[in-house]
């Protein structure tokens, strides 16, 4: 057990979760806004599609992603533009898989927060000559901030804890796709209990800190706003 075996999977995991969270917010916020505001008749079908990873076994999702990211799927096509053969078993592939897998955890709290804001503050903003774009940034986003923070934290934490999907599409390449949860699995397979203990214990502490921080942050903001 030394820093050289412990550190790479931790760093990779944090990188993956960080990059994924940025994309989750960029992608999830407009989806959540649309779901909260549209009168489109089949919006719940779209919502179900977003929520699908909640119930789908990670291996099933991973299997389809593997095909999509592989040489014969759209991922392979994109990879060839950059001179690669496939997006599977690569960091970008992991990011794509993580985004899809964690999307519902980000979209749901943000959508609820936007729904709680409702029409009226946006109408008031319109009567004060704020364009819809202006009102989105100056009224809707600040009022929905607790939901946005919850969405980001949950998306990040869920990506850190990911296992099945990554195993399917990322394999176990040290430094490239070998994330924390897979490293722990490996150490257990190899009966390296000590290393598994250290990694698992850190993940446990990290998760606790994240959840506690989120809860206290939400409570603090709720208290200030009330």
């Amino acid at each position: 057990m030394n820093a050289e075996t412990l550190w790479p999977p931790i760093r990779l995991t944090l990188e993956l979760a960080g990059v994924t969270t940025v994309f989750l917010l960029l992608l999830g916020t407009p989806i959540a806004w649309w779901l909260a505001r549209t009168r489109f008749r089949f919006k719940e079908a779209v919502a179900a599609l977003v929520a699908l990873p909640l119930v789908l076994p990670p291996t099933v999702l991973g299997f389809y992603l593997l095909i999509a990211l592989g040489p014969d799927g759209p991922g392979g096509f994109v990879a060839r533009l950059f001179g690669e053969r496939s997006l599977a078993f690569s960091f970008p592939g992991l990011v794509i898989g993580s985004i899809i897998y964690s999307l519902p955890f980000t979209v749901q709290p943000i959508r609820s927060a936007f729904e709680a804001v409702g029409d009226r503050p946006l109408e008031a903003a319109a009567t004060l000559r704020a364009s819809p774009w202006d009102a989105f940034w100056t009224v809707a986003v600040p009022l929905a901030r607790p939901g946005l923070i919850a969405g980001a934290v949950l998306g990040f934490a869920h990506t850190v804890g990911e296992f099945g999907v990554i195993l399917m599409i990322g394999g176990n390449i040290p430094g490239a796709t070998r994330v924390l949860s897979i490293a722990i699995y490996d150490h257990v397979e190899l009966m390296e209990w000590g290393t598994a203990h250290v990694l698992s214990g850190s993940l446990l502490a990290f998760s606790f800190v994240v959840v506690a921080l989120t809860l206290s942050l939400q409570k603090k903001m709720g208290g200030r706003d009330r």
């Binding site: 503050p121 008031a124 009567t127 000559r129 704020a130 819809p132 009224v139 706003d225």
Partner: peptide, 20 residues
């Protein structure tokens, strides 16, 4: 003309203030 391009001011019966 959408509401935000009309030169209006509106005080609603139930005031809608920006809570943030």
């Amino acid at each position: 003309v959408p509401a935000h391009r009309r030169r209006i001011g509106f005080a609603f019966q139930e005031p809608v203030l920006f809570d943030h």
